[in-house]
Design a protein around this nucleic acid. Structure first.
Lengths: 217, 217
DNA sequence: GTCTATACTACGATAGAC
DNA sequence: GTCTATCGTAGTATAGAC
């Protein structure tokens, strides 16, 4: 309780809170250039602080990175969990959840990049990630397990074909997270922004079309 | 012709050729930690040279990176091009090409990672990439265009449903490149190596199953 | 809570001896 | 073709004044 994640309740309510601002700036930079590609000097400068002042808010660069990642996962978890839990058959719940996931990824262009980069950079860190690393892993596991359970239930109840659940998970992640993380390459393919309302709608349609003919029994 | 890509024919045939060795080592490192995460010192040490000796073979770190990327794209292009060109209907050619792509990605665990990282890191470089950058872009465009053309032909000839070609491209890339780039995360999902013969076969099956029910008319 | 100053290491790249 | 030495910059992180 002495330095838990919820510390500083009194000040964090209305204070301009460099902390949030730092996380915002760091999120944008880490999304664009990855963990190793961003220097704390750049983060500090962009947030209007001296380099050393960052260490008053975050113990290290790794901790800052993990908090950025945890916040992103939290934003998704927050929206996906109710979508997964709400009523309807497995197919209906899956489609609704994927729509919610797509909306969440489309809302901030940083989100998908950060997530996908997070998958790649986990071997650049020491094995032990501390409490912030645990938060990240817990939230990620929660997301994954929720969708896995939905697939499993759908298969058991005959709503889905008997696919390999892990492989279908990978296909779904590719079709959502990869798509919105593909940046300039994806925009070159599509011929415009990945994040316009129209293209987001189109992605949902594609996802639905592929799954309706490829997963639903 | 004075310093083209094919220079040094005489020596490169049998000489131990630090060049190839450097590319091998750099490929492994860039795949694991990305452009910014790798120092030339580390590359040099791993290949058994002093740091400065690298500059005798490559003008800069960016050039080294681009040559690594170009070589990977070349390996894929080399195998995918005949698969795309060989006979059969659009559906048959697409499935065969995806099998070949999966085999190419599965052969070296570095390949998919390098490709996916390449998509993310193109904004970390200056706009002008020089001749090596042109090679990379040309090979990438060749790959993409080949598959796009196949999809287009299949739709025109009624073999495929009238999907959005760019969105289907993204789905296919996600289902292949992302999958094999997903590293520890993917292995955690699958519960074992992504690159074992069995899991590679399973990925092909999944791909085929999804497409057979989601793309083929 | 932010600052200056500093420690120490590593970075990409160049010069020039051998 | 590899080496040592060096340049100038930037990296993470700490100490301590204000």
């Amino acid at each position: 309780m002495s330095r838990g994640a919820g510390a500083g309740v009194r000040e964090s309510l209305e204070a301009p809170g460099s902390r949030e601002k730092i996380l915002d700036v760091a999120e944008a930079l880490f999304a664009r250039r990855g963990f190793a590609g961003v220097g704390l000097r750049e983060v500090a400068l962009a947030v209007g602080l001296g380099k050393s002042s960052l260490f008053h808010h975050f113990r290290s660069k790794v901790q800052l990175y993990l908090e950025v990642l945890g916040r992103v996962l939290g934003r998704i978890d927050e929206r996906l969990r109710p979508a997964l839990a709400a009523g309807g058959g497995p197919a209906e719940r899956l489609m609704r959840s994927l729509d919610v996931l797509v909306d969440a990824l489309a809302e901030h262009p940083t989100t998908a990049r950060l997530l996908l980069r997070g998958l790649f950079e986990d071997d650049a860190f020491p094995a032990d990630l501390g409490p912030e690393g645990d938060t990240v892993e817990r939230r990620l596991a929660s997301l994954i397990c929720g969708i896995e359970a939905l697939l499993r239930e759908g298969i058991e109840r005959g709503a889905f074909r008997r696919v390999s659940i892990p492989h279908m998970m990978q296909t779904l992640i590719g079709a959502t997270v990869y798509h919105f993380a593909s940046g300039e390459f994806g925009e070159g393919l599509i011929g415009g922004s990945l994040f316009s309302a129209e293209e987001v709608r189109r992605r949902k349609e594609e996802l639905r079309a592929v799954l309706d003919h490829g997963l639903t029994a």
